[in-house]
C-alpha cells in the first residue's frame, strides 16, 4: 500500500474484512442453511446428489422460488400477500376453463389469466394504500374470496372440483414448450421452470440493487413516511409490488396448469405461508425494509431439497413440516445474530 493510499483511508475504519462484507449480507443464513441441508440429505442417500436427484429437487424449488422472490420484494416493501397462493390456482383455472370450454386458444387464455391476476394485485394494492389497513387483513380477505370463487365457479361449470383437458386445446404444445417443457440433461430431467426461476431471481436482484425502483422499495418498507417526505411515490411502489406478486402467481399458475393439463379447484391454497417462510429464511425482515431476492431463492431451494430429500432418505413425508419449522427458526436466528454482530462492529 502506498503512503497516499494509507493517508486517504480513515483511521476509524477498522478495515472491513472481506469476511465481514459477506457476513452483513441478508442471505447469509439461507446459504449456511442450504449447505447444511444439502450435506445432511446427501449423507442419507447418494441419489440425492446424483444428477437425476438434483433435477428432482430443483423442480419444486423452481416454482416456489418464483413466488418467494416476488413475495420477498413485497416484504422488503413492507407488505404481505396472503392471496398469492390461491391466485396461482385462480390463474390456472382461468387458463384451463377458457381454453377448454370457451374456445380460446391457450395463449389468449393465458393473457386473460394475466389480466385477471394484475387486476387482483392492483385491487390488493389499492385497498392497502387507500385504507391503510394492514395488508395481512386485506389480502386475507382477497384470499378467502378467491378461494370461494375458485371452488364455486369450478363446481358451477363442471359439477366437479377440477378442470382438465388443456392438452387438447389449440396452442397447447407451443405454450408447454415455453413454460412446462423438461430437458433431459446428463441423466436428469430438468424442468424449464428452473430457467424462469433463475431469470426472475436475476431480474429482481437487478431491480432491487441497481434501479431507482429498488431504492424506493427498500425505503417504503424501511420508513414509509420518511420516504414520502423526500418525494418517493410510496403508493405507486406498493401497488406495483402487489401487481408484481400477482404476475408471479400467474406465471406459476400457468406453468403448473400447462404441465399437468388440469387444475384442482383448491390448487395453491396453503402455499401463501410457504412463500413467506422461504423469503424469511432468505433474510427478509417481517417488519420490512431489509431482505434479498437471492436469499428468498435459496430459501426456496432449501424447501425443494427438504421436500425431496425426505423421500430419498425413505422417511415419512410427515417429517417435512417439522424439518421446515426447525430450518425457519435456525435461519432467522442466524440472521438476527449476524445482523447484530455486523452492526456492533460497524459502530
Amino acid at each position: 500500500m502506498t503512503t497516499a493510499e494509507a493517508a486517504r483511508r480513515d483511521e476509524r475504519v477498522a478495515r472491513v474484512s472481506p469476511v465481514r462484507r459477506v457476513l452483513v449480507r441478508p442471505e447469509l443464513g439461507s446459504v449456511v442453511g442450504a449447505i447444511v441441508v444439502f450435506a445432511f440429505f446427501a449423507a442419507q442417500s447418494p441419489v440425492f446428489w446424483s444428477v437425476s436427484g438434483v433435477s428432482n429437487w430443483l423442480d419444486p424449488a423452481s416454482t416456489l422460488g418464483i413466488m418467494a422472490v416476488a413475495i420477498a420484494l413485497l416484504m422488503i416493501g413492507g407488505e404481505f400477500d396472503l392471496s398469492a397462493g390461491v391466485l396461482t390456482g385462480s390463474t390456472g383455472l382461468i387458463l384451463v376453463t377458457l381454453a377448454t370450454r370457451y374456445g380460446l386458444d391457450v395463449w389468449s387464455a393465458m393473457a386473460a389469466g394475466l389480466v385477471f391476476a394484475l387486476a387482483v394485485g392492483f385491487l390488493n394494492g389499492l385497498l392497502v394504500v387507500r385504507t391503510r389497513l394492514p395488508s395481512f387483513i386485506v389480502t386475507l380477505g382477497t384470499f378467502l374470496m378467491l378461494q370461494g370463487l375458485n371452488l364455486g365457479v369450478t363446481k358451477l361449470l363442471t359439477g366437479t372440483v377440477q378442470v382438465g383437458g388443456l392438452r387438447q386445446a389449440p396452442g397447447y404444445e407451443g405454450a408447454r414448450q415455453v413454460f412446462a417443457a423438461s430437458v433431459p440433461l446428463a441423466g436428469g430431467d430438468f424442468r424449464v421452470a428452473i430457467v424462469w426461476w433463475l431469470a426472475v431471481t436475476a431480474l429482481a436482484t437487478w431491480v432491487l440493487m441497481r434501479t431507482r425502483a429498488g431504492n424506493w422499495i427498500f425505503a417504503v418498507g424501511g420508513n414509509e413516511q420518511a420516504a414520502r417526505a423526500v418525494g418517493v411515490p410510496a403508493a405507486r411502489v406498493k401497488v406495483g409490488l402487489f401487481m408484481t406478486t400477482a404476475a408471479a402467481a400467474w406465471l406459476v399458475g400457468t406453468i403448473t396448469a400447462l404441465r399437468f393439463s388440469s387444475v384442482q379447484a383448491n390448487a395453491g391454497i396453503g402455499q401463501e405461508f410457504t412463500f413467506i417462510i422461504a423469503a424469511v429464511i432468505g433474510g427478509c425482515l417481517l417488519t420490512g425494509g431489509y431482505g434479498s431476492a437471492i436469499g428468498a431463492s435459496i430459501g426456496a431451494l432449501i424447501f425443494g431439497m427438504a421436500d425431496k430429500g425426505i423421500v430419498f432418505a425413505g422417511w415419512d413425508a410427515d417429517w417435512f413440516t417439522f424439518f421446515l419449522g426447525a430450518m425457519l427458526l435456525l435461519a432467522t436466528l442466524t440472521n438476527s445474530l449476524v445482523r447484530r454482530y455486523a452492526e456492533e462492529v460497524r459502530r
Binding site: F218, A219, G222, N223, Q225, A226, G289
Partner: peptide, 8 residues
C-alpha cells in the same frame, strides 16, 4: 422524527 431510513 422521520429524517432517514435506518436500514439503508
Amino acid at each position: 422524527d422521520l429524517a432517514m431510513i435506518p436500514l439503508m
